[in-house]
Design a protein around this nucleic acid. Structure first.
Lengths: 340, 340
DNA sequence: ACCCCAAATGTAAGCGCTTACAATTTCAAA
DNA sequence: TTTGAAATTGTAAGCGCTTACATTTGGGGT
């Protein structure tokens, strides 16, 4: 009779081994607080019974889950994969388990998932960026769940963050384009709503443009979703304009890949006819042809540092500090000088 | 005083609303079993207190989690992302939550994660492929956790599966290569150990080769990991051989992308100098240049069907049936005729 | 031998929720 | 009105585990 749901419990093990439940529990959690002989007996019983502890029961009794929750905007592309992987590995090293959820860039879904994760007893939470309803922060505080933001560095916000300066990073790559002589810029940004990274990156481009003496007509902003096809569509829209830009700065590599494809489809050579840049330096950036000039983000370092800081917060060893990581522009082939 | 961990409980809500805990519980789980007036009172209390149910306690009392666990070999690339996304969406529709873990293609880690997921009370499990220690199946049966395998269709195995015929699919694309006149084949496969998909795909190539009258020296197999760089390395190794293959069939698109890059680095034109094919038809396949000729796998359909079947098993409406989906070869530019 | 203290083990009280069952209320029909 | 079945609400028993506290055990030191 398969699937009969009658898994053995701690009591069964205790009975089988002829000891008390407390001893079994100690064998499993504090083996050194139990004498060798007993421990062997117990472990044997565990094995023969095929016992697996009931997580929910353990959580109820111990009131911690050793679980950290993370909510990322998307799993569809690899933007967050690398950083999250490093985050996870560091957590594992420290004895924590990671639970991941994705919000599809939708604030309402994110809120739902925050509640779900808290409900599941996450000892701490990692969120991406800072831009969300203040009630959420109230809730988190009231529930007593330490929370850290990543992928952004905004030390004046309510929660601590481990990330990088999106505005300065984007300004830097825009600066490179400007230095190449481009005077008519476009930016294909992610949707700004609820996405402070996107907001900051746009500001970065505008900063650079302003400092180079361009006026606001010379940099056209277009918002779209983080998908290859959206990037392609956006580029075509830009190029069909009366006076198309000569350099298109994309909010991330995925969009840039789409833009490159669209350019090719239009018979345009990148970067001769139009320059295109990315952001993130994901693996994709070196797969597309030409390889993407982009902003390198230290994903691994960010993931690792975020894990360290969040665990410190969970274990009450830190009240939460913000950490800013360095990015740098990596020059490859998709950005060239403006032809004259 | 932040992080004081004093979240309100059901009792608090009951007190606040002036009803019993049972009524509050019913309001939350069976709203229609409670009269309008009471319900309003309770919901108000829930809101003012900012109450979030304690998942562990609920699980303990109700003995189900409405949670499904899935363990995939990797999250690093998008191989499983699309299918899992569809799986998740269908589960959500049916009122279940998905918990994902990744095993890094390591059987020992997979086993650990199976136990972790069972321990967390997963009502059902999704695994990739069939090749694992029989004790695991004993354990799953003893714990009473319905389990389904995906990405493979092997109806004679112990667990039901929702997937496709890896052997026949690979044979089909090999056949296409053979039809183009190629007589010296290579396959860059994933590591076979614990990976029945890889095993079957190799067999598929061999089937096709045999039927075309090639002998086993004419198809050289090389095993590597599912990474771009491994694919690149493998291709270089193949081409440095005395008599290099004219068509390289890759175990998946990620490897193929690496192979294409390596070919370019060697100054080889794809497909003129060497043909390269992929498997999976992920987005990547259309980003690389030349676009990959590959095997299209119906990921969305597979994910959706797997969710439906697994939920049926969990709800005891099915004992678990196997479903085979169709794949097809999509011809793009990376496979060309053998030059003579 | 005996005493005493530390180490090992046992006892039992919850953790916050669901749900069977009991008690109470409601309301339509007589 | 009265009555009783149906609808609503309350009572309280666990679910399987951890852990504070109580009890027992095992040995050195004398």
């Amino acid at each position: 009779m398969p699937y009969s749901k009658n898994a053995p419990t701690l009591d069964d093990v205790a009975k089988q081994a002829g000891v008390s439940t407390a001893t079994v529990s100690r064998c499993l959690n504090n083996p050194d607080r139990v004498v060798e002989k007993t421990r062997k007996k117990v472990m044997q019983a565990v094995k023969t019974l095929g016992y697996t502890p009931n997580f929910a029961a353990r959580v109820m009794a111990a009131k911690r889950t050793s679980t950290i929750g993370a909510i990322i905007p998307t799993m569809e592309n690899a933007i967050f994969a690398r950083g999250l992987q490093a985050f996870q590995e560091e957590l594992h090293r420290k004895g924590y388990t990671l639970l991941v959820a994705s919000s599809a860039y939708r604030p309402d879904i994110e809120e739902e998932e925050i509640r779900a994760l808290v409900s599941r007893g996450a000892d701490g939470l990692l969120l991406i960026g800072h831009d969300r309803k203040p009630e959420i922060y109230d809730y988190l505080e009231q529930q007593g769940v330490p929370t850290l933001c990543a992928w952004s560095y905004m030390p004046d916000e309510r929660l601590p963050s481990v990330g990088f300066d999106n505005r300065a990073s984007m300004k830097a790559i825009a600066q490179v384009a400007l230095d190449q002589g481009h005077t008519k810029l476009a930016m294909i940004s992610a949707i700004q709503k609820g996405n402070d990274r996107a907001q900051q990156r746009i500001k970065g481009v505008q900063d650079a443009a302003r400092e180079s003496g361009l006026n606001s007509d010379d940099v056209i902003i277009i918002e779209t979703t983080y998908e290859v096809d959206s990037g392609a569509r956006a580029l075509k829209q830009l190029m069909s304009n009366g006076e198309p830009p000569t350099a298109v700065l994309c909010g991330n590599d995925v969009i840039a890949v789409g833009a490159v494809r669209a350019a090719k489809e239009l018979g345009l050579n990148v970067p001769r006819d139009v320059s295109i840049t990315g952001f993130d330096d994901m693996e994709l950036a070196r797969i597309v042809e030409p390889e993407l000039t982009t902003v390198h983000v230290p994903h691994l370092d960010m993931g690792r540092k975020a894990a360290q800081e969040l665990v410190a917060m969970v274990e009450r060893k830190s009240k939460g500090i913000s950490i800013c990581l360095e990015t740098n522009v990596v020059a490859r082939q998709s950005l060239g000088p403006q032809k004259r």
